[in-house]
């Protein structure tokens, strides 16, 4: 809540709705990588607005997962500049390794595979994002290593100690 209050203090008293995106990010990180209807209702309560206003916003922006996801969400950039550097091959490799298609979660529940548009990392493509971390210049070997590391990783939130 301290993190939420910090953001609320950034906006004029009569413009607290401005904090909706920062709060949704905090909520998604706090509640397992997605925002449920209950979480959105809670956000509405904090901001003193109608729940529908939160749904409207959460559905417009692509970063908010509205369904449960695996432990890690792999967001692979698929746009032209990354395609030139091998994103098609990276996506295919990950599908094979995880045994699931884009949009699905691996059977062990560890990974949800998503494709996203340009992540401002085109010089170091192919690349993907997991939470706040970028994994760049990936090839088959470094992607496999990344999967192993992620499996073993304890997920921490940025506002926790030892992040």
């Amino acid at each position: 809540m301290a993190e939420i209050r910090r953001y609320l203090s950034h906006y004029p008293a009569d413009r607290q709705k401005s904090a909706i995106l920062p709060i949704l990010h905090i909520a998604q990180a706090e509640f397992g990588g997605w925002v449920s209807p209950e979480v959105m209702d809670k956000v509405a309560e904090i901001l003193n607005i109608q729940p529908i206003e939160v749904y409207e916003v959460a559905t417009f922006y692509t970063m908010f997962n509205l369904k449960p996801v695996g432990k890690h969400v792999l967001e692979v950039c698929r746009t032209g500049p990354c395609m030139l550097r091998g994103s098609d091959q990276l996506i295919e490799h990950l599908e094979n390794r995880l045994g699931c298609k884009v949009g699905e979660t691996s059977a062990d529940g560890n990974f949800t595979l998503k494709t996203v548009e340009c992540l401002a990392s085109c010089g170091t493509g192919p690349m993907l994002q997991v939470r706040e971390q970028f994994y760049e210049n990936l090839d088959a070997a470094s992607a496999d290593q990344m999967l192993e590391d992620l499996k073993a990783l304890t997920v921490r939130k940025p506002w926790e100690e030892n992040y």
Binding site: H10, L21, P22, L24, F60, Y61, T62, V116, E117
Partner: peptide, 10 residues
């Protein structure tokens, strides 16, 4: 001065 994050939308 404050930093404000977007939500993923070009």
């Amino acid at each position: 001065l404050h930093v404000h994050p977007g939500g993923g939308a070009y």
